[in-house]
């Protein structure tokens, strides 16, 4: 059996709302340590991988590892029907592995709402990626910045064009774009430390200058989820997709992998 309980408005609900503009269906793997979710956007430009450790929930129980496909958009619609103060329980029993039961319980325990949501096939949303620890060392540059600043950069640039060029070297991290009506260039002088301060832009890992072109539509989606957190970590490599990461508690994370544009 799998069962988790959370309060309305919890971080899970916030994240599910924030990923909706990219993701309809997701593959969810549950274990005793927590649950992970993987999803591809419909245009196959972004892969989303997140892990919610069990300790971020009010209660969490998973007797046996299990994997299921969830129509995230439908689930979010159901979760929106909860009232302030409700305790939300999400449950799948071994006897019935065809649907997921969502229950809202009012704070005074006088009203309970049960809903069943059918599970779907989401196996195509699982991608084979190497262990994160190995992968992170493959990035040429990794920097952290306040997520509000990241969102502001994406918004400012999207006024001019659909694309952003992110360039990183030892001296500067820049976000720039050029369109018919003009150009924008936002430059940040990074700190260089392993312990990024919350309010500053910090270059944490640098193996050489790198630049990537990305579609701002997808970047704005990454920025949207990142605003639920203080800081966002961004990794660039010419051989890997751009990585945008936010940490959830000690061990949890949300990682977006965004395919760049290339010159043909």
């Amino acid at each position: 059996m799998f069962e988790l309980t959370m309060a309305k408005g919890s971080i899970l609900q916030g994240v599910l709302e924030a990923i909706l503009d990219l993701v309809n269906v997701a593959n969810v793997d549950c274990s005793s340590k927590g649950f992970s979710l993987q999803a591809l956007d419909t245009e196959h430009v972004v892969f989303l991988s997140l892990f919610f450790p069990s300790e971020v929930f009010r209660s969490y129980r998973c007797d046996e590892d299990c994997s299921m496909g969830i129509a995230i958009a439908d689930m979010v619609d159901l979760l929106r029907a909860s009232n302030d103060g409700d305790i939300i329980t999400i449950k799948v029993t071994d006897q019935n592995f065809e649907d997921i039961t969502i229950t809202f319980e009012s704070p005074d325990k006088t009203k309970t709402t049960d809903m069943d949501l059918q599970l779907v096939d989401a196996r195509s949303h699982r991608l084979k990626i190497s262990e994160w620890h190995d992968m992170e060392s493959e990035y040429q540059a990794i920097f952290c910045m306040p997520s509000a600043q990241f969102m502001l950069n994406c918004k400012s640039l999207s006024v001019i064009d659909d694309d952003v060029v992110i360039r990183v070297n030892e001296e500067v991290i820049s976000f720039s774009t050029k369109g018919k009506s003009g150009c924008v260039n936002i430059s940040h002088v990074p700190n260089k430390t392993d312990n990024p301060e919350k309010a500053s832009v910090t270059l944490t890992h640098m193996r050489g200058p790198v630049s990537l072109t990305l579609n701002l539509r997808y970047m704005k989606s990454c920025a949207k989820v990142s605003t639920l957190f203080d800081q966002v970590k961004i990794g660039l490599s010419t051989k890997l997709p751009l990585m945008v990461e936010c940490k959830i508690a000690e061990k949890g994370y949300i990682r977006y992998f965004v395919a760049p544009k290339i010159t043909e």
């Binding site: 591809l40 196959h44 430009v45 972004v46 892969f47 195509s124 699982r126 991608l127 084979k128 990626i129 694309d163 072109t213 579609n215 890997l240 997709p241 992998f257 965004v258 395919a259 760049p260 544009k261 290339i262 010159t263 043909e264």
Partner: peptide, 14 residues
């Protein structure tokens, strides 16, 4: 000119 790559170029389906 620049073209959008697919994420599957980097990661295979499991």
């Amino acid at each position: 000119f620049q073209v959008q790559t697919e994420i599957l170029k980097f990661f295979a389906v499991q």
